[in-house]
Amino acid sequence: MKLRILKSSVTNPWFNLATEDWIFQALDANSHTLFLWRNSETVVIGRSQNPWVECKIDKMEADDIFLARRQSGGGAVFHDLGNTNFTFLSPKDSYDQDANFTIIINALKKLGIEADLSGRNDMQVGDKKISGSAFKHAADRSFHHGTLLVNANMQKLGDYLNPHPLKLKAKGIKSVRARVANLKEFNEDINHERLSDAIIEAFCEHYGDTAPVEELDEASLAKQPALNTYYQQMADWEWRFGKTPEFSHHIETRFDWGIIDLHLDVKQAVVSEVVIFSDALNVELIDLLKETLTGAKYNKKEIKDKLDGLATARPELAAQVEDVEKWLVGEMEG
Protein backbone atom coordinates (compact mmCIF):
# COMPACT_ATOMS: atom_id res chain seq x y z
CA MET A 1 0.00 0.00 0.00
CA LYS A 2 1.39 3.38 -0.98
CA LEU A 3 2.29 6.16 1.46
CA ARG A 4 1.30 9.78 1.21
CA ILE A 5 2.96 12.60 3.18
CA LEU A 6 1.42 16.06 3.35
CA LYS A 7 2.93 19.03 5.15
CA SER A 8 1.28 22.42 5.56
CA SER A 9 3.30 25.60 5.25
CA VAL A 10 0.19 27.57 6.32
CA THR A 11 -0.39 28.45 9.97
CA ASN A 12 -4.04 29.53 9.60
CA PRO A 13 -5.99 27.01 11.74
CA TRP A 14 -9.09 27.16 9.54
CA PHE A 15 -6.96 26.10 6.55
CA ASN A 16 -5.34 23.27 8.50
CA LEU A 17 -8.57 21.95 10.02
CA ALA A 18 -10.18 22.18 6.57
CA THR A 19 -7.26 20.19 5.16
CA GLU A 20 -7.83 17.55 7.82
CA ASP A 21 -11.49 17.37 6.81
CA TRP A 22 -10.56 17.16 3.15
CA ILE A 23 -8.12 14.32 3.94
CA PHE A 24 -10.80 12.51 5.93
CA GLN A 25 -13.71 13.02 3.53
CA ALA A 26 -12.28 13.37 0.04
CA LEU A 27 -8.79 11.88 -0.16
CA ASP A 28 -8.23 8.39 -1.56
CA ALA A 29 -8.29 6.16 1.51
CA ASN A 30 -6.19 3.44 -0.14
CA SER A 31 -2.97 4.76 1.30
CA HIS A 32 -1.40 5.42 4.65
CA THR A 33 -1.41 9.20 4.85
CA LEU A 34 0.55 11.41 7.23
CA PHE A 35 -0.27 15.12 7.53
CA LEU A 36 1.93 17.49 9.59
CA TRP A 37 0.90 21.03 10.45
CA ARG A 38 0.92 23.77 13.08
CA ASN A 39 -1.26 26.76 13.86
CA SER A 40 -0.75 30.39 14.77
CA GLU A 41 -2.16 31.27 18.19
CA THR A 42 -5.56 29.60 18.30
CA VAL A 43 -8.04 28.20 20.77
CA VAL A 44 -9.44 25.01 19.23
CA ILE A 45 -12.67 23.79 20.81
CA GLY A 46 -14.30 20.38 20.42
CA ARG A 47 -17.38 19.87 18.30
CA SER A 48 -19.76 19.92 21.30
CA GLN A 49 -18.26 22.79 23.25
CA ASN A 50 -19.47 26.26 24.12
CA PRO A 51 -16.91 28.95 23.22
CA TRP A 52 -18.38 31.38 25.78
CA VAL A 53 -17.84 28.84 28.57
CA GLU A 54 -14.40 27.70 27.43
CA CYS A 55 -12.69 30.87 26.18
CA LYS A 56 -12.13 34.52 26.94
CA ILE A 57 -13.64 35.65 23.64
CA ASP A 58 -12.95 39.36 24.23
CA LYS A 59 -9.31 38.88 25.08
CA MET A 60 -8.88 36.61 22.06
CA GLU A 61 -10.37 39.23 19.74
CA ALA A 62 -8.20 41.98 21.25
CA ASP A 63 -5.04 39.87 20.83
CA ASP A 64 -5.90 38.50 17.34
CA ILE A 65 -6.20 34.92 18.57
CA PHE A 66 -8.08 32.56 16.24
CA LEU A 67 -11.07 30.55 17.44
CA ALA A 68 -11.55 27.26 15.64
CA ARG A 69 -14.02 24.42 16.17
CA ARG A 70 -12.89 20.98 15.08
CA GLN A 71 -15.12 18.21 13.76
CA SER A 72 -14.06 15.77 16.48
CA GLY A 73 -15.06 15.81 20.14
CA GLY A 74 -13.03 16.48 23.26
CA GLY A 75 -11.97 19.58 25.13
CA ALA A 76 -10.52 23.00 24.40
CA VAL A 77 -6.82 23.33 23.61
CA PHE A 78 -4.52 26.24 22.88
CA HIS A 79 -2.30 25.95 19.81
CA ASP A 80 0.60 28.16 18.86
CA LEU A 81 3.66 27.71 16.67
CA GLY A 82 5.18 25.70 19.54
CA ASN A 83 2.70 22.85 18.83
CA THR A 84 3.33 20.29 16.12
CA ASN A 85 0.15 18.53 14.98
CA PHE A 86 0.03 15.16 13.26
CA THR A 87 -2.78 13.37 11.45
CA PHE A 88 -2.78 9.74 10.30
CA LEU A 89 -5.35 8.42 7.83
CA SER A 90 -5.55 4.74 6.90
CA PRO A 91 -8.07 2.42 5.25
CA LYS A 92 -10.30 0.98 7.97
CA ASP A 93 -9.13 -2.60 7.39
CA SER A 94 -5.45 -1.74 7.83
CA TYR A 95 -5.77 0.99 10.46
CA ASP A 96 -3.49 0.36 13.42
CA GLN A 97 -3.68 2.88 16.24
CA ASP A 98 -0.74 1.31 18.06
CA ALA A 99 1.37 1.69 14.91
CA ASN A 100 0.64 5.43 14.85
CA PHE A 101 1.73 5.85 18.45
CA THR A 102 4.83 3.72 17.78
CA ILE A 103 5.77 6.00 14.86
CA ILE A 104 5.59 9.09 17.11
CA ILE A 105 7.47 7.34 19.96
CA ASN A 106 10.18 6.20 17.50
CA ALA A 107 10.45 9.73 16.07
CA LEU A 108 10.99 11.12 19.57
CA LYS A 109 13.61 8.42 20.24
CA LYS A 110 15.56 9.75 17.25
CA LEU A 111 15.67 13.07 19.09
CA GLY A 112 16.83 11.45 22.34
CA ILE A 113 13.44 11.59 24.07
CA GLU A 114 11.93 8.51 25.71
CA ALA A 115 8.14 8.78 25.56
CA ASP A 116 5.46 6.20 26.22
CA LEU A 117 1.73 5.78 25.88
CA SER A 118 -0.45 6.83 28.78
CA GLY A 119 -4.03 5.59 28.79
CA ARG A 120 -5.82 5.40 25.47
CA ASN A 121 -4.82 8.64 23.83
CA ASP A 122 -2.01 10.51 25.58
CA MET A 123 1.77 10.25 25.44
CA GLN A 124 4.04 11.28 28.23
CA VAL A 125 7.69 11.67 29.16
CA GLY A 126 8.05 10.58 32.78
CA ASP A 127 4.84 11.79 34.44
CA LYS A 128 4.33 14.80 32.13
CA LYS A 129 1.88 14.76 29.24
CA ILE A 130 3.46 15.88 25.96
CA SER A 131 0.77 14.75 23.52
CA GLY A 132 -2.97 14.15 23.28
CA SER A 133 -4.89 12.40 20.49
CA ALA A 134 -8.41 12.00 19.16
CA PHE A 135 -9.86 9.48 16.69
CA LYS A 136 -12.56 9.31 14.06
CA HIS A 137 -13.85 6.35 12.04
CA ALA A 138 -15.95 6.13 8.89
CA ALA A 139 -17.15 3.18 6.81
CA ASP A 140 -13.92 2.81 4.83
CA ARG A 141 -11.34 4.91 6.66
CA SER A 142 -9.95 5.71 10.08
CA PHE A 143 -8.35 8.86 11.29
CA HIS A 144 -6.07 9.65 14.24
CA HIS A 145 -4.89 13.15 15.04
CA GLY A 146 -2.88 14.57 17.87
CA THR A 147 -0.70 17.40 19.02
CA LEU A 148 2.85 17.43 20.38
CA LEU A 149 3.96 20.20 22.74
CA VAL A 150 7.33 21.29 21.37
CA ASN A 151 7.80 24.79 22.74
CA ALA A 152 4.24 25.96 23.43
CA ASN A 153 3.56 29.00 25.56
CA MET A 154 1.94 27.41 28.60
CA GLN A 155 1.06 30.80 30.08
CA LYS A 156 -1.16 31.64 27.10
CA LEU A 157 -3.20 28.51 27.73
CA GLY A 158 -4.35 30.13 30.97
CA ASP A 159 -4.76 33.53 29.31
CA TYR A 160 -7.43 32.45 26.85
CA LEU A 161 -9.09 29.42 28.40
CA ASN A 162 -11.24 29.33 31.54
CA PRO A 163 -13.16 32.60 31.55
CA HIS A 164 -14.68 34.35 34.54
CA PRO A 165 -17.32 31.95 35.84
CA LEU A 166 -20.36 33.39 34.09
CA LYS A 167 -23.71 32.02 35.12
CA LEU A 168 -23.89 29.86 32.03
CA LYS A 169 -25.57 26.49 32.36
CA ALA A 170 -24.00 24.71 29.45
CA LYS A 171 -25.04 21.45 27.88
CA GLY A 172 -21.70 20.29 26.55
CA ILE A 173 -18.27 19.13 27.58
CA LYS A 174 -16.02 21.12 29.86
CA SER A 175 -12.27 20.81 29.49
CA VAL A 176 -10.01 19.08 31.97
CA ARG A 177 -6.49 20.42 32.46
CA ALA A 178 -3.55 18.02 32.86
CA ARG A 179 0.11 18.21 33.93
CA VAL A 180 1.92 19.04 30.73
CA ALA A 181 5.48 19.68 29.54
CA ASN A 182 7.20 20.87 26.38
CA LEU A 183 9.55 18.53 24.51
CA LYS A 184 12.07 21.42 24.61
CA GLU A 185 12.55 20.55 28.31
CA PHE A 186 13.98 17.18 27.27
CA ASN A 187 15.92 18.29 24.16
CA GLU A 188 16.65 22.00 23.82
CA ASP A 189 17.50 21.67 20.09
CA ILE A 190 14.08 20.36 19.11
CA ASN A 191 11.86 22.45 16.81
CA HIS A 192 8.94 21.92 14.41
CA GLU A 193 11.17 21.17 11.39
CA ARG A 194 13.39 18.66 13.20
CA LEU A 195 10.42 16.93 14.77
CA SER A 196 8.55 16.81 11.44
CA ASP A 197 11.60 15.29 9.72
CA ALA A 198 11.90 12.67 12.48
CA ILE A 199 8.18 11.76 12.22
CA ILE A 200 8.41 11.47 8.41
CA GLU A 201 11.50 9.25 8.77
CA ALA A 202 9.84 7.02 11.41
CA PHE A 203 6.65 6.81 9.26
CA CYS A 204 8.61 5.65 6.19
CA GLU A 205 10.69 3.20 8.25
CA HIS A 206 7.58 1.69 9.84
CA TYR A 207 5.99 0.93 6.46
CA GLY A 208 9.29 0.12 4.72
CA ASP A 209 8.54 2.57 1.92
CA THR A 210 8.96 6.23 1.03
CA ALA A 211 6.99 9.03 -0.59
CA PRO A 212 7.65 12.63 -1.62
CA VAL A 213 6.54 15.30 0.85
CA GLU A 214 3.68 17.33 -0.64
CA GLU A 215 3.82 20.92 0.61
CA LEU A 216 0.36 22.45 1.05
CA ASP A 217 -0.17 26.21 0.85
CA GLU A 218 -2.94 28.70 0.00
CA ALA A 219 -2.63 27.75 -3.68
CA SER A 220 -3.88 24.26 -2.70
CA LEU A 221 -7.30 25.81 -1.98
CA ALA A 222 -7.62 26.95 -5.57
CA LYS A 223 -6.70 23.49 -6.91
CA GLN A 224 -9.08 21.58 -4.64
CA PRO A 225 -12.69 22.84 -4.68
CA ALA A 226 -13.63 20.44 -1.87
CA LEU A 227 -10.81 21.81 0.30
CA ASN A 228 -11.98 25.37 -0.34
CA THR A 229 -15.53 24.40 0.70
CA TYR A 230 -14.24 22.97 4.00
CA TYR A 231 -12.15 26.10 4.54
CA GLN A 232 -15.20 28.37 4.12
CA GLN A 233 -17.06 26.25 6.68
CA MET A 234 -14.22 26.34 9.23
CA ALA A 235 -13.85 30.13 8.92
CA ASP A 236 -17.60 30.76 9.15
CA TRP A 237 -19.11 32.31 12.30
CA GLU A 238 -22.05 29.91 11.99
CA TRP A 239 -19.71 26.94 12.41
CA ARG A 240 -17.45 28.36 15.10
CA PHE A 241 -20.18 29.93 17.24
CA GLY A 242 -23.51 28.86 15.76
CA LYS A 243 -22.86 25.16 16.42
CA THR A 244 -22.72 25.74 20.17
CA PRO A 245 -25.02 23.43 22.16
CA GLU A 246 -28.03 25.17 23.71
CA PHE A 247 -27.28 27.12 26.89
CA SER A 248 -28.83 29.73 29.11
CA HIS A 249 -27.34 32.91 30.57
CA HIS A 250 -28.89 34.28 33.74
CA ILE A 251 -27.77 37.61 35.25
CA GLU A 252 -29.35 40.13 37.53
CA THR A 253 -28.53 43.59 38.77
CA ARG A 254 -30.08 46.65 40.41
CA PHE A 255 -30.24 50.02 38.67
CA ASP A 256 -31.50 53.14 40.44
CA TRP A 257 -34.69 52.75 38.36
CA GLY A 258 -35.27 49.07 39.18
CA ILE A 259 -34.02 45.48 39.39
CA ILE A 260 -33.46 43.54 36.19
CA ASP A 261 -33.34 39.73 36.42
CA LEU A 262 -32.51 38.60 32.88
CA HIS A 263 -32.66 35.06 31.48
CA LEU A 264 -31.43 34.45 27.93
CA ASP A 265 -31.93 31.07 26.25
CA VAL A 266 -29.41 30.64 23.44
CA LYS A 267 -29.79 28.09 20.64
CA GLN A 268 -27.19 27.83 17.90
CA ALA A 269 -25.67 31.06 19.22
CA VAL A 270 -28.90 33.02 18.68
CA VAL A 271 -31.01 34.34 21.58
CA SER A 272 -34.15 32.22 21.24
CA GLU A 273 -36.02 33.35 24.33
CA VAL A 274 -35.77 36.25 26.75
CA VAL A 275 -37.41 36.32 30.17
CA ILE A 276 -37.05 39.46 32.28
CA PHE A 277 -38.30 39.83 35.84
CA SER A 278 -38.25 43.44 37.02
CA ASP A 279 -39.78 45.86 39.46
CA ALA A 280 -39.17 48.77 37.05
CA LEU A 281 -42.22 50.98 36.71
CA ASN A 282 -42.00 51.18 32.92
CA VAL A 283 -43.47 47.91 31.66
CA GLU A 284 -43.07 48.99 28.04
CA LEU A 285 -39.28 49.23 28.52
CA ILE A 286 -39.19 45.58 29.65
CA ASP A 287 -41.29 44.45 26.66
CA LEU A 288 -39.10 46.40 24.23
CA LEU A 289 -35.92 44.91 25.73
CA LYS A 290 -37.36 41.40 25.31
CA GLU A 291 -38.41 42.11 21.74
CA THR A 292 -35.03 43.67 20.83
CA LEU A 293 -32.90 40.88 22.28
CA THR A 294 -34.96 37.96 20.90
CA GLY A 295 -33.43 36.69 17.67
CA ALA A 296 -30.12 38.53 18.16
CA LYS A 297 -26.87 36.63 17.73
CA TYR A 298 -25.21 36.01 21.10
CA ASN A 299 -22.46 38.36 20.08
CA LYS A 300 -21.44 41.55 21.87
CA LYS A 301 -21.42 43.68 18.73
CA GLU A 302 -24.84 42.54 17.57
CA ILE A 303 -26.44 42.99 20.99
CA LYS A 304 -24.84 46.43 21.32
CA ASP A 305 -26.08 47.42 17.84
CA LYS A 306 -29.64 46.21 18.56
CA LEU A 307 -29.84 48.08 21.88
CA ASP A 308 -28.29 51.21 20.31
CA GLY A 309 -31.05 51.01 17.69
CA LEU A 310 -33.71 50.83 20.43
CA ALA A 311 -32.18 53.82 22.29
CA THR A 312 -32.20 55.86 19.06
CA ALA A 313 -35.79 54.89 18.21
CA ARG A 314 -37.06 55.64 21.72
CA PRO A 315 -35.01 58.59 23.04
CA GLU A 316 -37.20 58.88 26.15
CA LEU A 317 -35.98 55.38 27.17
CA ALA A 318 -32.39 55.88 26.01
CA ALA A 319 -30.87 56.31 29.50
CA GLN A 320 -32.32 53.02 30.81
CA VAL A 321 -31.54 51.14 27.57
CA GLU A 322 -27.93 52.36 27.74
CA ASP A 323 -27.70 51.17 31.37
CA VAL A 324 -28.89 47.69 30.32
CA GLU A 325 -26.59 47.64 27.28
CA LYS A 326 -23.48 48.54 29.25
CA TRP A 327 -24.29 45.95 31.91
CA LEU A 328 -25.25 43.11 29.55
CA VAL A 329 -22.33 43.61 27.15
CA GLY A 330 -19.98 43.77 30.16
CA GLU A 331 -21.38 40.51 31.56
CA MET A 332 -20.88 38.81 28.18
CA GLU A 333 -17.12 39.25 28.43
CA GLY A 334 -15.68 35.82 28.20
Rank of each mutant, 00 (worst) to 15 (best):
58 D>N: 14
31 S>C: 13
44 V>P: 02
56 K>T: 00
63 D>T: 00
35 F>L: 10
50 N>I: 02
58 D>F: 07
29 A>Y: 15
45 I>G: 06
54 E>I: 03
48 S>C: 04
34 L>P: 06
47 R>W: 08
62 A>E: 14
32 H>W: 10
44 V>D: 03
33 T>N: 06
55 C>P: 07
58 D>Q: 13
40 S>R: 14
37 W>Y: 12
55 C>L: 10
63 D>P: 08
53 V>P: 01
53 V>R: 14
50 N>G: 03
37 W>K: 11
45 I>F: 01
31 S>E: 14
36 L>D: 07
43 V>I: 12
35 F>K: 10
29 A>W: 11
49 Q>V: 11
49 Q>Y: 04
52 W>I: 02
41 E>H: 13
30 N>P: 01
35 F>H: 12
42 T>C: 15
55 C>W: 01
35 F>N: 10
55 C>I: 01
64 D>N: 15
32 H>D: 04
53 V>T: 10
30 N>Y: 12
49 Q>W: 03
51 P>W: 05
39 N>K: 08
47 R>E: 12
56 K>M: 05
46 G>D: 04
37 W>G: 11
41 E>Q: 12
49 Q>R: 09
48 S>F: 08
56 K>S: 08
39 N>V: 00
54 E>L: 05
34 L>S: 05
33 T>H: 08
51 P>M: 10
35 F>P: 09
29 A>I: 06
51 P>Y: 05
46 G>I: 03
34 L>Q: 04
42 T>S: 15
48 S>L: 09
43 V>Y: 02
53 V>F: 10
46 G>V: 02
